[in-house]
Amino acid sequence: MSDILLSLSGVHTHIGPYHILQGVDLLVPEGGVTVLLGRNGAGKTTTLRTIMGLWTASRGDIRFEDQVITKFATPEISRRGIAFVPEDMGIFTDLTVSENMMLAASNGPIDEKRLSWITDLFPPIGTFWKSSAGTLSGGQKQMLSVARAIIEPRRLILIDEPTKGLAPAIIKSMTDALKELKETDTTILLVEQNFAMASSIGDTVAVMDDGRIIHAGNMQELVEDTALQEKLMGLTLEVHQ
């Protein structure tokens, strides 16, 4: 088994009067893709935002490598090599694509070799380099959002619903790019509703319901067990191809 890069132990998160995460235990092995599945409202996005320090855990521990980061501020978490691609993409629509990318390169000028690799992954980044980000299509904005997160090398990327609302051709491009990204030293924690896409890229999987992890294991084992899919999520891979 790979070393564990990120772990959550008994994590609770309250948002106002609402108790969203209710004792989340999650292990993210280094060097692969862990997929977080579950119905809407199960707590997946709250889990990512809590890891990133955007919401503060009220109880429990979040450990990154050998450091407990539960109470760290978001900028400190980012400096440790964790990036977040939110569901709403988080790009600056009034700025150009190049300006969005330059803002994300917090350690100085953009590395041209890395930028070339990114534009190979996401060709629209190069095509629309001088265009306003607000004029991009939904799929192109999602590519820009991921590209911003990887403009500098990251140990861990948290990605929330990268294929939501995208056309099948764009989903394939996004999937291919994430498959290439996982071949680098980057670990990915991915929230995704598209089970076919998730199963094609995921190495390990965790399923959430009502603010807790109700299943964790190998993705291939879940793919091969349609009864377990139905039990956990009310779906089977066959009907979601």
Rank of each mutant, 00 (worst) to 15 (best):
F128H: 15
T119Q: 10
I125L: 06
T119V: 14
I125D: 03
E112G: 06
A133E: 09
E112K: 13
S116D: 15
R114L: 11
L103H: 05
G126V: 09
I118H: 01
W129D: 06
K113P: 05
N107V: 00
W117S: 11
I118T: 01
L121M: 13
S132K: 12
W129L: 12
A105Q: 03
W117L: 09
K130W: 05
W129T: 08
D120Q: 15
K130E: 14
T119E: 14
K113G: 10
G134S: 03
P109W: 02
S132W: 06
G108R: 10
G126W: 02
T127E: 15
F122K: 00
P124F: 00
T127K: 15
F122L: 11
L121K: 01
E112M: 12
D111I: 06
E112I: 10
D120C: 14
P123N: 06
P123R: 02
K130A: 11
K130S: 15
D120R: 15
S106Q: 13
I118M: 06
W117K: 12
D120H: 15
E112Q: 13
S116T: 14
S132D: 12
G108C: 05
A105K: 02
M102L: 12
I118D: 00
L115I: 04
E112L: 11
L121D: 05
P123D: 04
P124D: 04
N107C: 07
S106P: 01
S132P: 03
A104W: 08
M102R: 15
G134I: 07
K130V: 05
G108L: 08
S131Q: 14
S132N: 12
L121A: 05
D111S: 08
S132Y: 05
A104D: 06
S131Y: 10
G108K: 09
F128E: 12
W117A: 13
L115G: 01
T127A: 08
L103K: 01
I125P: 03
R114A: 04
S116C: 13
L121T: 10
P124N: 07
S106M: 13
A133H: 01
S106R: 14
T127M: 09
S116R: 13
F122R: 04
A133N: 04
T119A: 07
